[in-house]
Design a protein around this nucleic acid. Structure first.
Lengths: 213, 213
DNA sequence: GTCTATAGATTGATAGAC
DNA sequence: GTCTATCAATCTATAGAC
């Protein structure tokens, strides 16, 4: 009972820090303080363990994000207005940075999530993308609604740009390995989210698409 | 003589597609059509091979980027004006998307570069960062010059956001593995660069930093 | 320079005792 | 549920013949 959680915790840390392939089951079980064979007993395989690590946190997280996005959509619908891009972006990204009560594992997990979009490892990419897709789709649709006058192609690419910015922000914020890059800025999550939303909103609202298309 | 290049080409493709750890020397040499032992004969080790793959293309690429950045700085200096953020961003990113004469390997290599900033694999990160640092530093300084009134902390984070957007754009543009995400947009590199620069400029120039700092 | 053969280490997974 | 012991596969790297 406790063993499963210990394995999940240790795997979360190592996957986030060193990646899926570089984290051996021996390293995971050693850090968890349990026997090597117990991973296969409890989860079946290393890949299934990764799936469990992701699902454990991503399920409740995505429920919250979906709830907030739908609230925005309903509210703007009632008033017959377009949704505010900044609100959409905040609802999408804020929950990822962690809950109000900062849990020990969140920093590691948010780092792991940031891989969802950048990681080229096929296994990690496949599993993470499967869990992220519903939220991403709704957010993309809402952005399209919030920013009239942009072609689907432009909406799509601007969405990708901000996903890239989001991912990088999460990584830098949560990964100790990136410490060298962070200089001495001790930016707290609140401020970082605000800057990120501000930057992204500025990019999304840009009208200066040159005419060369 | 030819063997070294064949190994470099094959390694470039596999590293970009599947990552460093997931690409075994057996797979690399098989794709290159050469004997397994020749990697160590010509390069010394797998890590040295990665270094060679990166250095081969990044050296001339960074020379070009530095040249363009310094031109912008000199030009604005002569006229006693601040450099244009959009020009800076374009000089930084455009060369990465490939030369005028599209070489076969560029698509793969640009994908590999995109890992420089997102990859958590320590080996890849270390080597790529070492090659990127000089250009990044100059670009960061120039952005700081071009955008007065922003604190160092804000400049730093906006810079990080656009690095994330850049990386994602490169990955999506060059990686066949991301094909599922790209829908049916056949966006050419010229258009993509324009959209990316436009988005990033909009984000960098944003003034709407709330007062809660 | 290129090859075969193999060393030596590490990997994910499992059989079987307790 | 947890353990030891081990299998079979894979990995990087190297020794030595040609």
């Amino acid at each position: 009972m406790d063993t499963k959680q210990e394995i999940l915790n240790a795997a979360e840390v190592l996957f986030a820090r060193s990646g899926y392939h570089a984290s051996s089951m021996r390293a995971i079980t050693e850090n968890a303080g349990v026997n090597l064979a117990l991973v296969n007993y409890h989860f079946g395989s290393k890949e299934a363990l990764l799936e469990a690590v992701i699902a454990r946190r991503l399920r409740p997280l995505n429920e919250l994000r979906l709830k907030r996005l739908k609230e925005i959509r309903n509210r703007s619908g009632e008033r017959n207005m377009r949704p505010d891009p900044e609100e959409i972006l905040r609802a999408y990204i804020e929950p990822i940075f962690g809950s109000r009560e900062p849990e020990r594992g969140w920093a590691y997990f948010s780092n792991l999530i940031a891989r969802a979009f950048t990681e080229s490892d096929e296994i990690v990419q496949k599993i993470l993308l499967r869990h992220m897709k519903p939220v991403n789709q709704i957010m993309l649709d809402m952005l399209s609604d919030a920013l009239p006058g942009l072609s689907d192609e432009e909406i799509f690419w601007r969405y990708q740009f901000l996903i890239g910015a989001f991912g990088r922000a999460i990584r830098l914020n949560s990964s100790p390995g990136y410490g060298r890059l962070k200089r001495n800025f001790e930016t707290d999550s609140e401020t970082l989210i605000t800057m990120l939303v501000s930057f992204s909103t500025g990019g999304m609202k840009t009208t200066g698409i040159p005419a060369q298309r």
